[in-house]
Protein backbone atom coordinates (compact mmCIF):
# COMPACT_ATOMS: atom_id res chain seq x y z
CA UNK A 1 0.00 0.00 0.00
CA UNK A 2 1.35 3.42 -0.80
CA UNK A 3 1.96 5.65 2.13
CA UNK A 4 -0.53 8.23 0.86
CA UNK A 5 -3.29 5.68 0.69
CA UNK A 6 -2.54 4.27 4.10
CA UNK A 7 -2.50 7.80 5.55
CA UNK A 8 -5.90 8.46 4.08
CA UNK A 9 -7.12 5.20 5.48
CA UNK A 10 -5.79 6.07 8.93
CA UNK A 11 -7.44 9.47 8.82
CA UNK A 12 -10.76 7.91 7.94
CA UNK A 13 -10.36 5.39 10.72
CA UNK A 14 -9.60 8.22 13.14
CA UNK A 15 -12.67 10.17 12.11
CA UNK A 16 -14.81 7.07 12.48
CA UNK A 17 -13.29 6.41 15.90
CA UNK A 18 -14.06 9.97 16.96
CA UNK A 19 -17.63 9.59 15.75
CA UNK A 20 -18.11 6.32 17.59
CA UNK A 21 -16.58 7.69 20.76
CA UNK A 22 -18.81 10.75 20.59
CA UNK A 23 -21.84 8.55 20.10
CA UNK A 24 -20.85 6.39 23.06
CA UNK A 25 -20.28 9.47 25.19
CA UNK A 26 -23.89 10.46 24.59
CA UNK A 27 -25.15 6.96 25.16
CA UNK A 28 -23.41 6.36 28.50
CA UNK A 29 -25.41 7.35 31.52
CA UNK A 30 -22.64 9.35 33.21
CA UNK A 31 -24.47 11.12 35.99
CA UNK A 32 -27.11 10.46 38.63
CA UNK A 33 -30.37 12.46 38.57
CA UNK A 34 -29.96 16.08 37.52
CA UNK A 35 -31.69 17.82 40.39
CA UNK A 36 -30.44 21.44 40.30
CA UNK A 37 -29.68 24.16 37.80
CA UNK A 38 -26.06 23.79 38.90
CA UNK A 39 -26.19 20.17 37.82
CA UNK A 40 -27.39 21.18 34.38
CA UNK A 41 -24.51 23.61 33.94
CA UNK A 42 -21.89 21.20 35.26
CA UNK A 43 -23.10 18.30 33.17
CA UNK A 44 -22.98 20.47 30.08
CA UNK A 45 -19.43 21.46 30.97
CA UNK A 46 -18.55 17.80 31.35
CA UNK A 47 -19.94 16.94 27.95
CA UNK A 48 -17.98 19.73 26.36
CA UNK A 49 -14.83 18.46 28.06
CA UNK A 50 -15.46 14.96 26.79
CA UNK A 51 -16.07 16.22 23.28
CA UNK A 52 -12.83 18.21 23.39
CA UNK A 53 -10.85 15.28 24.77
CA UNK A 54 -11.95 12.62 22.33
CA UNK A 55 -10.13 14.01 19.28
CA UNK A 56 -6.94 14.52 21.29
CA UNK A 57 -6.97 11.00 22.59
CA UNK A 58 -7.90 9.52 19.24
CA UNK A 59 -5.11 11.50 17.61
CA UNK A 60 -2.53 10.07 20.00
CA UNK A 61 -3.78 6.52 19.62
CA UNK A 62 -4.07 6.80 15.86
CA UNK A 63 -0.50 7.97 15.48
CA UNK A 64 0.70 5.12 17.68
CA UNK A 65 -1.29 2.47 15.84
CA UNK A 66 -0.40 3.89 12.46
CA UNK A 67 3.30 3.85 13.34
CA UNK A 68 3.04 0.29 14.58
CA UNK A 69 1.28 -0.67 11.38
CA UNK A 70 3.49 1.15 8.89
CA UNK A 71 6.86 1.59 10.56
CA UNK A 72 7.37 -1.61 12.52
CA UNK A 73 10.64 -3.32 11.77
CA UNK A 74 10.27 -5.81 8.97
CA UNK A 75 12.46 -8.89 8.61
CA UNK A 76 15.80 -7.83 7.18
CA UNK A 77 15.68 -4.38 8.72
CA UNK A 78 17.38 -5.41 11.96
CA UNK A 79 20.27 -3.04 11.40
CA UNK A 80 18.37 -0.28 9.64
CA UNK A 81 17.96 3.15 11.19
CA UNK A 82 15.23 5.70 10.62
CA UNK A 83 15.81 9.03 8.91
CA UNK A 84 17.70 11.44 11.21
CA UNK A 85 14.97 14.03 11.73
CA UNK A 86 15.90 16.28 14.65
CA UNK A 87 12.88 18.51 14.83
CA UNK A 88 10.66 20.91 13.02
CA UNK A 89 10.11 24.33 14.52
CA UNK A 90 6.82 24.98 12.72
CA UNK A 91 5.36 21.76 14.01
CA UNK A 92 6.60 22.41 17.55
CA UNK A 93 5.13 25.89 17.65
CA UNK A 94 1.89 24.45 16.33
CA UNK A 95 1.51 21.82 19.02
CA UNK A 96 2.40 24.31 21.71
CA UNK A 97 0.01 26.98 20.54
CA UNK A 98 -3.06 24.91 19.74
CA UNK A 99 -3.33 23.16 23.13
CA UNK A 100 -2.66 26.48 24.87
CA UNK A 101 -5.55 28.13 23.10
CA UNK A 102 -7.79 25.14 23.62
CA UNK A 103 -6.96 24.93 27.31
CA UNK A 104 -7.44 28.62 27.93
CA UNK A 105 -10.76 28.33 26.13
CA UNK A 106 -12.06 25.54 28.30
CA UNK A 107 -10.82 27.06 31.58
CA UNK A 108 -12.51 30.27 30.51
CA UNK A 109 -15.72 28.40 29.89
CA UNK A 110 -15.40 26.60 33.22
CA UNK A 111 -15.10 29.95 34.98
CA UNK A 112 -18.32 31.09 33.34
CA UNK A 113 -20.03 27.96 34.64
CA UNK A 114 -18.49 28.50 38.05
CA UNK A 115 -19.78 32.08 38.19
CA UNK A 116 -23.25 31.05 37.15
CA UNK A 117 -23.31 28.23 39.65
CA UNK A 118 -22.21 30.41 42.53
CA UNK A 119 -24.05 33.63 41.69
CA UNK A 120 -26.17 34.90 44.55
CA UNK A 121 -29.76 35.16 43.38
CA UNK A 122 -32.18 37.85 44.52
CA UNK A 123 -34.08 35.48 46.77
CA UNK A 124 -32.46 32.74 48.71
CA UNK A 125 -33.11 30.69 51.81
CA UNK A 126 -30.44 29.74 54.32
CA UNK A 127 -30.02 26.34 55.89
CA UNK A 128 -27.33 25.49 58.39
CA UNK A 129 -25.56 22.14 58.24
CA UNK A 130 -23.62 20.74 61.18
CA UNK A 131 -21.33 17.77 60.79
CA UNK A 132 -20.00 15.64 63.56
CA UNK A 133 -18.61 12.14 63.64
CA UNK A 134 -20.72 10.54 62.11
CA UNK A 135 -24.02 12.32 61.58
CA UNK A 136 -25.54 15.38 59.98
CA UNK A 137 -27.94 17.85 61.58
CA UNK A 138 -29.66 20.74 59.88
CA UNK A 139 -30.64 24.16 61.19
CA UNK A 140 -33.53 26.12 59.73
CA UNK A 141 -33.23 29.77 60.89
CA UNK A 142 -36.24 32.00 61.64
CA UNK A 143 -36.02 33.54 58.20
CA UNK A 144 -36.95 30.11 56.83
CA UNK A 145 -39.33 28.84 59.47
CA UNK A 146 -41.07 32.13 60.00
CA UNK A 147 -40.97 31.39 63.72
CA UNK A 148 -38.57 29.78 66.12
CA UNK A 149 -35.41 28.30 64.62
CA UNK A 150 -35.65 24.59 63.96
CA UNK A 151 -33.08 21.88 64.45
CA UNK A 152 -33.58 18.64 62.62
CA UNK A 153 -31.84 15.51 61.47
CA UNK A 154 -33.83 15.69 58.25
CA UNK A 155 -33.11 17.81 55.23
CA UNK A 156 -36.03 19.24 53.29
CA UNK A 157 -35.64 21.89 50.62
CA UNK A 158 -38.27 23.58 48.47
CA UNK A 159 -38.13 23.10 44.72
CA UNK A 160 -37.31 26.16 42.65
CA UNK A 161 -35.71 28.21 45.41
CA UNK A 162 -32.03 28.82 45.76
CA UNK A 163 -30.67 27.37 48.99
CA UNK A 164 -27.48 28.45 50.64
CA UNK A 165 -26.02 25.88 53.00
CA UNK A 166 -23.73 27.10 55.78
CA UNK A 167 -21.48 24.28 56.87
CA UNK A 168 -19.97 23.90 60.33
CA UNK A 169 -18.07 21.04 61.94
CA UNK A 170 -17.91 20.05 65.58
CA UNK A 171 -14.81 17.87 65.30
CA UNK A 172 -12.79 16.98 62.21
CA UNK A 173 -13.16 17.81 58.52
CA UNK A 174 -16.12 16.33 56.69
CA UNK A 175 -17.51 17.18 53.28
CA UNK A 176 -21.13 17.91 52.48
CA UNK A 177 -21.92 16.44 49.09
CA UNK A 178 -25.20 15.88 47.30
CA UNK A 179 -24.29 14.02 44.09
CA UNK A 180 -27.66 14.83 42.52
CA UNK A 181 -26.90 18.52 43.06
CA UNK A 182 -23.28 18.18 41.74
CA UNK A 183 -21.94 20.32 44.55
CA UNK A 184 -19.80 19.67 47.59
CA UNK A 185 -17.62 21.55 49.99
CA UNK A 186 -15.54 20.55 52.99
CA UNK A 187 -16.92 21.19 56.46
CA UNK A 188 -13.94 22.54 58.33
CA UNK A 189 -13.64 22.99 62.09
CA UNK A 190 -13.05 26.62 63.00
CA UNK A 191 -14.58 28.17 59.89
CA UNK A 192 -17.95 28.27 58.18
CA UNK A 193 -18.06 27.25 54.54
CA UNK A 194 -20.93 27.61 52.09
CA UNK A 195 -22.43 26.38 48.91
CA UNK A 196 -25.64 27.07 47.10
CA UNK A 197 -27.88 25.26 44.65
CA UNK A 198 -31.33 25.64 43.18
CA UNK A 199 -33.24 22.34 43.21
CA UNK A 200 -35.47 21.86 40.17
CA UNK A 201 -36.51 18.24 40.46
CA UNK A 202 -38.72 16.67 43.11
CA UNK A 203 -37.44 13.59 44.85
CA UNK A 204 -35.17 12.22 47.54
CA UNK A 205 -31.44 12.06 46.97
CA UNK A 206 -28.49 10.81 49.02
CA UNK A 207 -26.36 13.19 51.07
CA UNK A 208 -22.82 11.91 51.36
CA UNK A 209 -19.96 12.74 53.70
CA UNK A 210 -17.15 12.88 51.21
CA UNK A 211 -14.06 13.40 53.31
CA UNK A 212 -12.48 10.68 55.36
CA UNK A 213 -13.52 11.51 58.91
CA UNK A 214 -12.80 8.29 60.77
CA UNK A 215 -14.37 4.92 61.42
CA UNK A 216 -17.94 5.78 60.47
CA UNK A 217 -17.09 7.74 57.34
CA UNK A 218 -18.62 5.17 54.98
CA UNK A 219 -21.91 5.33 56.86
CA UNK A 220 -22.19 9.08 57.40
CA UNK A 221 -25.15 9.45 55.09
CA UNK A 222 -28.38 11.36 55.04
CA UNK A 223 -31.11 12.17 52.55
CA UNK A 224 -32.25 15.39 50.99
CA UNK A 225 -35.94 15.69 50.11
CA UNK A 226 -36.78 18.16 47.39
CA UNK A 227 -40.46 19.02 47.84
CA UNK A 228 -42.84 21.69 46.62
CA UNK A 229 -42.79 24.98 48.56
CA UNK A 230 -46.20 24.14 50.03
CA UNK A 231 -45.02 20.75 51.24
CA UNK A 232 -41.89 22.38 52.57
CA UNK A 233 -43.82 24.82 54.74
CA UNK A 234 -46.12 22.10 55.89
CA UNK A 235 -43.12 20.03 56.91
CA UNK A 236 -41.58 22.96 58.79
CA UNK A 237 -44.80 23.51 60.69
CA UNK A 238 -45.15 19.87 61.59
CA UNK A 239 -41.57 19.74 62.79
CA UNK A 240 -42.00 22.84 64.87
CA UNK A 241 -45.04 21.48 66.58
CA UNK A 242 -43.31 18.19 67.17
CA UNK A 243 -40.37 20.03 68.63
CA UNK A 244 -42.63 22.20 70.71
CA UNK A 245 -44.58 19.31 72.17
CA UNK A 246 -41.32 17.49 72.74
CA UNK A 247 -40.03 20.51 74.65
CA UNK A 248 -43.13 20.70 76.83
CA UNK A 249 -45.43 22.91 74.80
CA UNK A 250 -43.65 26.21 75.29
CA UNK A 251 -44.84 27.66 72.01
CA UNK A 252 -48.47 28.73 71.91
CA UNK A 253 -49.06 27.63 68.35
CA UNK A 254 -47.55 24.31 69.19
CA UNK A 255 -49.77 23.93 72.21
CA UNK A 256 -52.87 24.86 70.21
CA UNK A 257 -52.30 22.33 67.47
CA UNK A 258 -50.60 19.64 69.52
Amino acid sequence: MTSRRSLALASVAAVVAVAIAVAISFWIHWFPAQATTQAQNTDRLYHVLVLASIPIFVLVVTVILYSVWQFRMKPGEELKDGPPIHGNTRLEVFWTAIPTVLLLGIVGYSFVVLRNNEKKPAREIQIGVTAQQFAWTYQYPPSVTGGAPLNSTQLYVPKGESVEFSLRSKDVIHAFWIPAFRVQEDVVPGITTHWRATPIRLGSYPVVCNLLCGLGHSLMRSTVHVVTPAQFHAWITSQQSAAASGAGGLSTTGAATG
Partner: peptide, 19 residues
Protein backbone atom coordinates in the same frame (compact mmCIF):
# COMPACT_ATOMS: atom_id res chain seq x y z
CA UNK B 1 -3.59 13.32 31.91
CA UNK B 2 -6.79 14.28 30.17
CA UNK B 3 -8.87 13.31 33.18
CA UNK B 4 -6.44 15.46 35.19
CA UNK B 5 -7.15 18.42 32.95
CA UNK B 6 -10.87 17.84 33.46
CA UNK B 7 -10.27 18.00 37.21
CA UNK B 8 -8.71 21.40 36.75
CA UNK B 9 -12.13 22.67 35.65
CA UNK B 10 -13.42 23.87 38.99
CA UNK B 11 -17.18 23.27 38.67
CA UNK B 12 -16.55 19.75 37.46
CA UNK B 13 -14.03 19.06 40.22
CA UNK B 14 -16.58 20.33 42.74
CA UNK B 15 -18.70 17.35 41.77
CA UNK B 16 -16.11 14.61 41.47
CA UNK B 17 -13.49 15.63 44.02
CA UNK B 18 -12.82 12.77 46.44
CA UNK B 19 -14.79 10.25 44.38
Amino acid sequence: GISGVMLAMVPFDIHVSAT
